[in-house]
């Protein structure tokens, strides 16, 4: 059965605390942190973007699986913050892992679920034996407008999964999607910061899609919440995923490993990938995982996975926890400098 052959993650090594952001706007930091359940968020350095994060995560995945570039037949990168509006991220990743030129590549965009759509695409072409292995990447370096609620959570990070049929560490037993036209969050062409519908992003958007997709995937698998060792959903803040998991019938024990937003913020397309990577870092053969992504606009992709014996053979060092523990705190001034929020005019 097709599934995950390898995985990789990358989180930048800087973070800013919620209280520091709040203090700039005269807001109550501890209230914001508690309200969002986000205490710090990752911040990319001035030389990091979706492309560098995608390359680092993918190189880690390649190293873990001991794969060479010639083993890769497809690369799809899902993001809403591709550095180029026109010119693929995926070709740069392909070059940086030595996979060129015999492969297909494309960039995906579906808000925060573009990466999981890439997983589904890889499953299709791997299942048809069109390619030996396909790479799906979910990564973002999203920005919230200064002072906007999003600024407390929008962060950076990403993950890679390699989908194939051989040496699978976690089979993907089922996948399904739930998609509607729900404009809860968007960014127009040429705009720097996204806009959102405030509380409209909750019930009719995130919760409706995640809950429906979660139920559909369990119906499809004939499973119940207690059949899973881990659950991971999209996590735009630290509260929504807990409420969604609980409403679906899961417990803290099942969702806590994959819940990273309280410490690293919302990595958008990277969120489910990083949560899944944190789970795979410690998962044992036989563990069962439910993953439900969400992308504004809107849709959810659900996956039912079972960890195999192969995972025991894999070198799983450089864990997500390692990456989180090396993050160093920066202040708002440095954050503003790193994230291009300073108006430099044309003095550079």
């Amino acid at each position: 059965m097709s599934g995950i052959v390898s995985y990789g993650a990358y989180i930048p090594s800087h973070k800013i605390e919620t209280g520091e952001i709040a203090s700039v706007w005269g807001a109550d930091g501890s209230a914001w942190a508690k309200n969002l359940n986000v205490y710090s968020k990752s911040v990319p350095g001035p030389d990091e973007d979706v492309i560098t994060i995608a390359v680092e995560a993918t190189r880690l995945a390649m190293k873990r699986a001991k794969l060479g570039g010639t083993n890769i037949g497809a690369i799809y990168t899902g993001s809403e913050s591709h550095p180029y509006a026109v010119k693929p991220t995926s070709t740069i990743v392909a070059e940086a892992i030595g996979a060129t030129p015999n492969l297909t590549a494309a960039d995906f965009e579906f808000a925060c679920k573009a990466g999981t759509a890439a997983i589904q695409t890889c499953l299709g072409i791997v299942g048809n034996n069109q390619v030996e292995n396909g790479i799906a990447i979910g990564v973002d370096t999203s920005q919230g407008a200064p002072g906007d609620a999003l600024e407390y959570s929008a962060s950076a990070g990403g993950g890679t999964v390699i989908i194939g049929n051989k040496n699978v560490i976690a089979t993907i037993n089922h996948t399904t999607s739930y998609t509607t036209d729900t404009p809860d969050f968007w960014r127009r062409e040429g705009q720097k910061y996204p806009r959102h519908g405030g509380r409209f992003t909750g019930k009719p958007a995130f919760f409706k899609h995640v809950m429906m997709c979660g139920k559909m995937i369990m119906d499809m698998a004939g499973s119940k919440p207690e059949d899973y060792d881990y659950v991971v959903t999209h996590q735009p803040n630290g509260k929504f995923p807990i409420r969604a998991a609980k409403s679906l019938g899961f417990t803290e024990e099942q969702y806590k490993t994959g819940l990273l937003t309280p410490r690293i913020g919302n990595t958008y397309s990277g969120a489910v990938f990083l949560g899944l990577a944190a789970i795979l870092d410690i998962a044992k053969p036989g563990d069962r995982i439910l993953a439900v992504a969400y992308g504004s606009g809107a849709g959810s992709d659900g996956f039912d996975l079972t960890v195999t014996d192969e995972i025991a053979k894999m070198d799983r060092s450089e864990t997500v926890e390692d990456m989180i523990s090396r993050m160093e705190i920066i202040n708002y001034a440095t954050y503003a400098k790193y994230r291009g929020k300073l108006n430099m005019g044309d003095s550079k």
């Binding site: 350095g45 030389d47 990091e48 973007d49 492309i51 560098t52 390359v55 680092e56 940086a96």
Partner: peptide, 12 residues
């Protein structure tokens, strides 16, 4: 001097 380093992929 003497510290160990490793390469990373970055924007130049």
């Amino acid at each position: 001097s003497g510290m160990r380093v490793k390469s990373v992929f970055r924007k130049l």
